[in-house]
Design a protein around this nucleic acid. Structure first.
Lengths: 146, 146
DNA sequence: TATTGTTATACTCTATAACTATA
DNA sequence: TATAGTTATAGAGTATAACAATA
């Protein structure tokens, strides 16, 4: 068989993803935020989440893994975690104004660095890259497995 | 701050990469190949590698991590691992014809599934996506960190 | 009895340190 | 003494199992 026209997608995507994470870490650190904490703040963007288990599932984490993260975020006043009066087993999770400000500041820095990279692509490639990536990233995993 | 126009690149790339790996696993399994073994076979595509440490570095692994992988590949006759006559501390690594056949068969299956996904993109997006991804994946990590 | 959140435990992956053999 | 490879050990991250509170 001749050499394939391109490497496997995962072979390109995984190391690149790792490098992008490495680029995020110093930014997160400068805001004293762990990666999982940032992911939680992003997920709480839209509306309050009803249970911790739902939040964990939404971000692809185990429910036991985010407990410490939520502890620290709540302690710093970046989220509110209140028992649901309707069902006092559950905790209502919501981001606070301070949490929003921090989240947005971090994301601005992260995307500023990413824009620096994307600027090196030809405009048509940049557009296609982002459109393709967004489309594929929104596919459910089982559709990717085939 | 308004909602950003797009998610962070890593936030799209990392889960997508995970899904793509999940899609590879059953294919690898059907050929009785571990992920690291496949990565090694891919890296030995071009020319023999002079040392195990160099191979490990090339694929982003620790040198202690690939020893068992090389053991099994050699035992199955998919690679040759011979002491360098010039420096008998080092091991010359090369893929065998059987290794090439297996590697190519696996890659065919993997890329066939990927083509199924890429086919869902508009032609211009598909082209831009692949060109952008290939360009960014070839950047050295320190250039991505900025 | 079932579910939410929590704590305690075990497992997997990976890196670090110590060892053998060659140089 | 320095290096390639190997083996043994330790660490980080993650998942599994058991538990307390509430329904």
């Amino acid at each position: 068989m001749a050499r394939p026209a391109r490497p496997d997608l995962a072979a390109m995507m995984v190391p690149l993803g790792r490098s992008l994470i490495a680029a995020e870490l110093p930014i997160l650190q400068s805001h004293d935020l762990k990666m999982w904490a940032y992911i939680v703040l992003l997920e709480l963007r839209e509306e309050p989440t009803r249970t911790q288990a739902a939040l964990a599932q939404a971000i692809g984490a185990d429910k036991t893994r985010i407990i410490g993260v939520l502890d620290e975020l709540a302690e710093r006043g970046l989220i509110r975690r209140t028992p649901d009066p309707q069902d006092r087993r559950a905790r209502l999770l919501a981001i606070t104004p301070a949490g929003k400000r921090l989240r947005d500041a971090v994301q601005r820095d992260i995307q500023a660095n990413e824009e620096r990279l994307l600027a090196r692509l030809a405009p048509a490639d940049r557009r296609g890259f982002l459109r393709g990536l967004q489309f594929l990233a929104e596919l459910p995993p089982e559709e990717i497995a085939g």
